[in-house]
């Protein structure tokens, strides 16, 4: 195979594609639908991840103080915490402040708390993290340091939901891998079956090519290209469909409201992932064609 043979091979592939235009178009549409499902899932995952990042930015750590800490000790603790590398800001919440806030949260049922003479709630520091540390990891690290400090009883930073969110993301990725794997196989299946028909339709041409001394690759490449055209068009079509759906979703704000998202709260696939989808289309198309060729050869033997 030489580079200057490529135009001929490409032309043959295009001719082949046109010769079975209807069958090829159907294959392209089915491939596109498979990629829409896969790409849609990808969109879901990256948006959940993105949202999770947004939530992590609001992470703050609360350090509850031991009861009966003196004012000096509290002040000393505060300045030590403010000096930690992760910490942006420290706000002191006294026992009474905490009770007041709790009353506010209870609203009309605040009467339940009547008769309390002293706040049962501990005083605390509410600590905002520096931007680069605003993540589950950063909060975890800071919490570890705080627990080592004298006078601090307990530290919380919403461990539970962070962990649950991470579990959910893991789960999404796993489901995505399974769905993705299934879709890859089905795309290969579609391409190899349509290409098997093309191989059959080309038998006479193949014989003639062998007659004039064409190498195996010269005979196979137009078919591989044809499969790659299928995969490419399928992938591009799926990206177009996904983008249309995305546009609809972002311009029709009520749809976002239904989905419980803030406006502008979703994003499209970054270009790297779009390119990966296109690359997957090309690769799967080539694999499907090679499988069809392999099967045809093993039948002839």
């Amino acid at each position: 195979m030489r580079l200057r043979q490529l135009p001929y091979l490409g032309r043959t592939a295009l001719e082949g594609f046109r010769a079975h235009a209807l069958m090829n178009l159907i294959a392209v549409i089915i491939i596109a639908l498979a990629f829409v499902v896969g790409g849609g899932f990808l969109l879901l995952v990256i948006n959940v991840e993105w949202a999770a990042e947004g939530w992590s930015e609001q992470i703050q750590v609360t350090a509850y103080l031991a009861d009966g800490l003196s004012a000096e000790a509290t002040q000393g603790l505060r300045s030590r915490i403010a000096g930690l590398p992760e910490v942006a800001q420290v706000r002191y919440v006294s026992k009474d402040d905490a009770l007041k806030a709790f009353r506010g949260q209870l609203g009309p049922r605040a009467s339940l708390l009547q008769g309390l003479t002293e706040s049962p709630l501990p005083a605390s520091f509410e600590i905002a993290l520096r931007p680069m540390h605003r993540s589950a990891d950063g909060a975890e690290r800071l919490a570890g340091r705080l627990r080592d400090l004298q006078g601090i009883e307990e530290v919380s930073y919403g461990q539970d939901w962070v962990r649950r969110l991470q579990g959910f993301l893991e789960f999404l990725r796993l489901v995505g891998a399974v769905i993705g794997g299934g879709l890859l196989l089905s795309v290969i299946f579609i391409v190899s079956n349509t290409m098997a028909l093309t191989v059959l339709a080309r038998r006479e041409e193949t014989e003639i090519l062998q007659l004039v001394g064409a190498t195996r690759s010269f005979i196979a490449l137009p078919l591989v290209f044809e499969g790659m055209i299928q995969g490419l068009l399928g992938a591009l079509l799926s990206l177009g469909l996904l983008y249309a759906a995305y546009e609809l979703f972002t311009t029709q704000l009520y749809l976002q409201a239904v989905a419980g998202l803030r406006p502008g709260g979703i994003r499209f696939l970054p270009w790297q992932l779009g390119a990966a989808v296109v690359g997957a289309g090309l690769l799967l198309g080539a694999i499907g064609s090679l499988l069809a060729l392999g099967r045809a050869e093993s039948v002839e033997r």
Partner: peptide, 11 residues
Amino acid sequence: ALALEVMGLPR
């Protein structure tokens, strides 16, 4: 030309 095409001769 096919017989020459498979040999990869210049156009």
